[in-house]
Amino acid sequence: MTPHELAAVIRDWAPAAPAPKVAIVLGSGLSGLADAVADAARIAYADLPGFPRTGVSGHSGALVLGRLAGVPVAVMAGRAHYYESGRADVMEPAIATLKALGADTLILTNAAGSLDEAMPPGTPMLIADHIALGPNPLIGREGDARFVNMVDAWDPELRALAHARAKALDIPLGEGVYLWFTGPSFETPAEIRMARRLGADAVGMSTVPEAILARYHGLRLLGLSMITNLGAGMTGRPLSHEETKAEAARGADRFRTLLLAILADLAGPTGGA
C-alpha cells in the first residue's frame, strides 16, 4: 500500500479529523501528550499497514489525529527503533504517510542522556544538529533525491521560535548536538568520552534516521530531547530504561507546556499552520 493509499484509509477511518499540518513523534515516557489531543481519533498502528510495531515499553503504538493548541496534528504515540529490526528505514512508511496526509512539519521528541552536567535530567534540549553512528535509512534508494542536503536540517526558524517560547515561559531550554547510537545496550563510559570529543551534547537510540527520512520527504524539522540522565560513567550509577521512563514522566509537564506553546505560535499567521 502506497503512502497516499494509506492516507486515504486513515481519512476514511477518521473522516471528521482535520488534515494535519504538524506531525509529532513521541519518545519514551512522553506518550501521555497524545491524551491532550482535542477531538481525537485514535488508530492503532496494528490497523495501519506498514506502520511500526512498537516493542518497547513507554511506546503505546497509536496514531492520534485531532488538534493541539488549535493546530491540526497527527501524533505518533511511540516509534520503532533500529535495534528492534535492524532496519534504519523502519519509520519510512509512517513518515511518508504523515506527509501524504498533509503535514509539512515534523516534530521529533525523544528521551536522551546528557553529556553536559549543566544540562541535567528534567531539562528539555533543542536539537541543533546530529551525528549518526548507525546506517543511513536511504541506503538502497535510487535517483538523485537520495542525496539529501542536511545543512540546517533542524529548521533554524523553528528553533528560534522554540527559544522564544521557552524564554517567555521561563523554561530552561538547552540546545545541542544529538548523537545516535544504535542500541539497545546503553553506551559504555568509553563511548560517552568519545561522543563528548566528537562534539555531542546528548545521546540516544532514535530520531536521526527519522530526521533523514523527514528531510528526504521535504518536511520541516524540529527536535526536542527530554534529558533523563547523564551519560554512562558521569555519575557512577548504572543506567536503566526504567530510569529513562521515570525521568521523562517527571519532566513531562514542562516539556508539554513548551511544546504546546510552540504549536500555538505555529497556529498563528506567521507559523504557516
Rank of each mutant, 00 (worst) to 15 (best):
P135C: 08
A164T: 09
P184K: 03
G231P: 03
A145K: 14
A190H: 12
G218M: 04
L230R: 10
N229F: 11
R165A: 14
A214I: 06
P189Y: 06
F181T: 14
M194L: 15
Y216H: 15
P156M: 10
N149S: 15
L161Y: 02
R193P: 08
G223N: 02
A145N: 11
H163P: 01
A190T: 10
M150K: 03
A195L: 13
A211Y: 01
L230Y: 12
L173K: 06
L213A: 03
R220T: 04
N149P: 11
P209A: 01
S185N: 14
L179R: 05
E210P: 09
M234P: 06
D155N: 12
F181S: 12
L158E: 00
R146Q: 15
V151A: 15
F186D: 05
T188W: 10
M234H: 10
L221F: 00
E157N: 14
P137T: 00
L230K: 09
L219H: 02
A214Q: 03
A145V: 11
V177L: 02
A200V: 05
P184T: 04
R159H: 04
L213R: 04
T182S: 15
L198K: 09
L221H: 01
E210R: 00
P135L: 04
I139P: 07
F181I: 14
E175I: 11
S225H: 06
M150V: 10
M234L: 15
F147W: 15
G174D: 05
G143R: 07
G199E: 07
E175Y: 09
L161E: 07
W180F: 15
A164I: 05
A153L: 10
L230G: 08
G231T: 10
A153I: 03
L213W: 01
I227V: 15
Y216E: 12
F186Q: 08
H163N: 11
A166N: 01
P209Y: 03
D201K: 07
T235E: 11
M226V: 06
I212E: 05
A162T: 06
